[in-house]
């Protein structure tokens, strides 16, 4: 299909057939498609209400050898607990998960103390009553609102989504041809969701004068339509870190996002570790099969 292909030969005087004419039509269509594909993302970015592309960040859990950073997960959990948990539930996370290997790895005592500081609903008991009791490590985090309606009523109509898989539920379009590379070994990029969320947490700006922000909404350049129902949740110094990490919005945003990435996929590290083993084995295995096959076929012309 490259240069020199007779299909692209538009010189006059060449033999004309219906087939050639239709090829030409198709070639033009493919060429036009390539142009549209390359130019539209740029054209779209120019529109003022269109959201901005998130910035890319370094993540310890990215790439083939990616691992979560225990210190970062602990700080991120602190930010979640002290800030985000007033609005966002995280219903798939049990207290005990925080002690599991590969996560924040809180000690058994820390997990037990943490659970004991929460109350959960239980029941019915022998007399048929529902009751509140102190949480156990096997319980899941209790949600801040009884149900969606209660949350919306408190948040002027907006609903803070559950955070259990939120990192996987967000992303952004990389456009052509970037998306092709995102899946390839050496280029692979799977942290779209995390990059979007960090950017969003840092993306509150003053709205331009011609942009109307309705009551109860805030201007955020990364949110679709640039309007979000979440007030800026982070401010410098709001959470105290005890490991000396900077107490800034940038750091909080990154830490809490890393924590959310771990909650969304606690198996990520074992997945990558096991994956390396599986792929190495398969490469050796396929290699052995290849040489055996060559040996067997060596006396057959084919």
């Amino acid at each position: 299909m490259a240069a020199g292909c007779p299909m692209l030969d538009l010189r006059p005087g060449k033999e004309q057939t219906p087939m050639k004419a239709s090829f030409r039509l198709m070639t033009l269509a493919v060429a036009a498609l390539a142009m549209v594909a390359v130019t539209t993302p740029a054209a779209r970015a120019g529109a003022s209400h269109e959201e901005e592309k998130p910035e890319r960040h370094e993540w310890s859990f990215a790439g083939v050898f990616g691992r979560f950073d225990k210190g970062q997960l602990r700080r991120g959990f602190k930010v979640y607990k002290e800030v985000c948990s007033t609005c966002h539930s995280i219903k798939m996370l049990a207290f005990r998960n925080l002690g599991q290997p590969g996560g924040p790895e809180l000690s058994e005592k820390e997990v037990a103390d943490l659970a004991a500081s929460y109350k959960v609903k239980d029941g019915p008991n022998d007399t048929g009553e529902y009751f509140e009791r102190t949480a156990r490590p096997s319980d899941r985090f209790p949600p801040p609102f009884a149900n969606e309606q209660a949350a919306r009523a408190a948040m002027s109509g907006a609903y803070p989504p559950d955070m259990s898989v939120l990192v996987k539920a967000r992303g952004y379009h990389r456009g052509f041809p970037g998306f092709l590379f995102d899946g390839l070994p050496g280029f692979s990029y799977q942290e779209h969701g995390a990059d979007y969320i960090v950017s969003l947490l840092k993306g509150y700006k003053d709205a331009p004068e011609d942009f109307k922000v309705p009551d109860g909404q805030y201007y955020n350049v990364y949110m679709i339509g640039r309007r979000i129902g979440m007030p800026p949740p982070l401010s410098d110094g709001a959470v105290t870190y005890d490991d000396g990490a900077p107490q800034t919005v940038d750091q909080y945003a990154k830490d809490v996002t890393a924590f959310m990435a771990w909650v969304a996929e606690p198996s990520l590290v074992s997945r990558k570790k096991i994956g390396l083993g599986v792929i190495s084995f398969l490469i050796v295995f396929a290699g052995l099969l290849y040489f055996t096959k060559r040996k067997i076929w060596s006396n057959v012309a084919h």
Partner: peptide, 19 residues
Amino acid sequence: GYAIGAFLVLYAWMTFFVP
């Protein structure tokens, strides 16, 4: 067998690294 082995390398890459 060899072709399946080679195909499995790709399949494992997708499953374990870019699922």
